[in-house]
Design a protein around this nucleic acid. Structure first.
Length: 483
RNA sequence: UCCUCCUUAGCUCAGUUGGUUAGAGCACAUGACUGUUAAUCAUGGGGUCCUUGGUUCAAGCCCAAGAGGGGGAGCCA
């Protein structure tokens, strides 16, 4: 006998079920009682909205009603009737309530009140039951689904690139080592170094920092591909924008140049944001109100000019501002901020990397819209980016979003073997180990391009959450891996 | 990793110039209430004032070190 003969609250609210006998299962959010009747607000996660259960103490035992406390899980059978109260159009009059799981009110940490995000982060195993995190994770799901839908509809193929890799080729950062060696007593070579020949893969391995290089290989046969997988960086980053384990989307396209790449990235971002706007209305309405309440407590100069929903609509409907690094430097150099020495790092000469205060100025003050910055100096970018005719810059692009900073980093790739090998040597990238990557330039090379999108940063932007640790269920950051 | 701020009841926070028995709201318990919307009203229980050491007649408050957390920066997505 199957247990799950229930109707989800989302379905209950979508159509007219008046007069029907139904079973609802979910968790108690609040209970309000008097001598004659109890009202139980129940939530099953299918929607941010609760459903009101009405329990008559003549029908439901005192013991059951007592155990139906905040956090308890219930199975309620009864009839849907028109509500006598004003907060909802219909409600469930309970004929029978079964307590599936009690939640001792003395020790259950969630209350029907506002908790701080910092407190909820410490109970990440329970925070998924709150309105805010329910909304965030439903939106996160919708965005992930929209990513796949967008690329699938466009004829891209989803490639699973390896989690365990042998190279830190991109130089994207510190890696987590993968080994089965005995850490207390590792085998040594004659000259005293750890003997990775004795390790599982017979070589030194680590968790991936990017699927891009493998993605490029796949694009050289399938044409247009994307990856969407976990990425690991062992950097000691302690910010609201960094995780040690995060999810990255990396499309890679044969026959794309830098401009094609920019067009794709902009269209893609607008698509997934529009998808969320269309499919997550209740959750985004809630998050919009939540963000508006938070704004009030911020100092005036840090407030957003637009609310969350308006911000999303604005990004979805307006062209991104495109400009080169060189143009950006000129704007920054001539800005009042720079002239009045209000930047912590003053912009003086071409070639310096932009600080986040500079990126914020361009996005939030100067253009007031997403910015695609292109053609950076080659010295501050990765070896695989295609060298421009000027000999100084590469065909890089960064997309900067308000409040988030860099959400996308990408480039047209260097497909010319000689130029690529020279650049690798200049940057001390071992060419021998990368023979397979260089083979794509030896055999049937073509212009191609791609980019990486930090999925959690996208979720941050769409949900308006200030800290990246609040848009992934169980965040991994330095010193934190408990759940 | 650096800078900076914070840590008092289950949660959010107040606590004056160092002074005797550390408070509030919410939550919880008990009771009241004929339909509530984070229900309301009354009563009650609840404290390692982050830890360790120091100064002092006296420390929640001052000093030092450590732990945990927030914000900013760097690295990046």
């Amino acid at each position: 006998m199957a247990f799950n003969k229930r109707i989800k609250i989302k379905a209950l609210l979508e159509d007219d079920h008046l007069g029907q006998s139904v079973t609802v299962m979910g968790w108690v959010r609040t209970k309000r009682s008097n001598k004659n009747v109890s009202f139980i607000a129940i939530n099953d996660g299918s929607t941010i909205k609760n459903f009101q259960v009405v329990a008559d103490p003549n029908q439901i035992s005192e013991d059951i009603l007592k155990k139906a406390s905040t956090g308890a899980c219930l199975k309620v059978q009864g009839q849907i009737v028109a509500s006598q109260g004003s907060g909802q159009s219909s409600e469930l009059v309970a004929q029978n309530i079964e307590i599936l799981g009690e939640a001792d009110p003395d020790t259950y940490p969630l209350q029907p009140k506002k908790h701080s995000l910092e407190f909820l982060r410490e109970i990440a195993h329970l925070r998924i039951r709150t309105n805010t995190f329910g909304a965030v994770f439903r939106v996160r799901h919708a965005l992930a689904f929209a990513v796949h839908k967008y690329f699938n509809d466009k004829g891209f193929f989803y490639i699973h690139t390896p989690i365990i890799t042998a190279s830190d080729a991109e130089g994207a950062g510190e890696t987590f080592k993968v080994t089965t060696l005995d850490l207390k007593n590792p085998p040594k070579t004659e000259d005293g170094k750890i003997d990775f020949k004795a390790d599982f893969f017979e070589r030194e391995t680590n968790l991936t920092v990017s699927g891009q290089l493998e993605g490029e290989l796949a694009a050289m046969g399938l044409g247009e591909i994307y990856t969407f997988g976990p990425t690991f960086r062992a950097e000691n980053s302690n910010t609201a924008r960094h995780l040690a384990e995060f999810w990255m989307i990396e499309p890679e396209m044969a026959f794309y140049d830098a401009e094609d790449n920019q067009n794709l990235a902009e269209e893609f971002l607008k698509y997934v944001i529009s998808y969320a706007l269309e499919n997550c209305k209740d959750d985004l309405d809630f998050l919009d109100k939540r963000a508006a309440e938070e704004e009030v407590s911020k100092p005036a100069d840090q407030r957003n000019e637009l609310g969350l929903l308006d911000r999303l609509k604005f990004v979805a409907e307006n062209e991104f501002q495109r400009l080169t690094y060189t143009e950006a430097i000129e704007i920054l150099k001539n800005s009042n901020q720079n002239k009045k020495k209000k930047f912590q790092y003053l912009v003086e000469k071409w070639g310096v990397d932009l600080q986040s205060e500079h990126e914020r100025y361009l996005v939030e003050k100067h253009f007031k819209k997403p910015v695609i910055l292109t053609d950076y100096p080659k010295e501050i970018k990765a070896f695989y980016m295609r060298q421009n005719e000027d000999g100084k810059t590469v065909a890089a692009m960064d997309i900067l979003f308000p409040g988030i900073g860099e959400i996308v980093g990408g480039s047209q790739r260097e497909e010319r073997l000689e130029l690529l090998v020279n650049r690798m040597k200049e940057m001390h990238i071992p060419t021998e180990e990368m023979w397979w990557y260089l083979d794509t330039r030896r055999f049937g090379a073509t212009p191609h391009a791609g980019f990486g999108l930090g999925f959690e940063r996208l979720v941050q932007f769409v949900t308006g959450m200030g800290n990246i640790r609040d848009v992934i269920a169980f965040p991994r950051t330095p010193g934190h891996a408990e759940f």
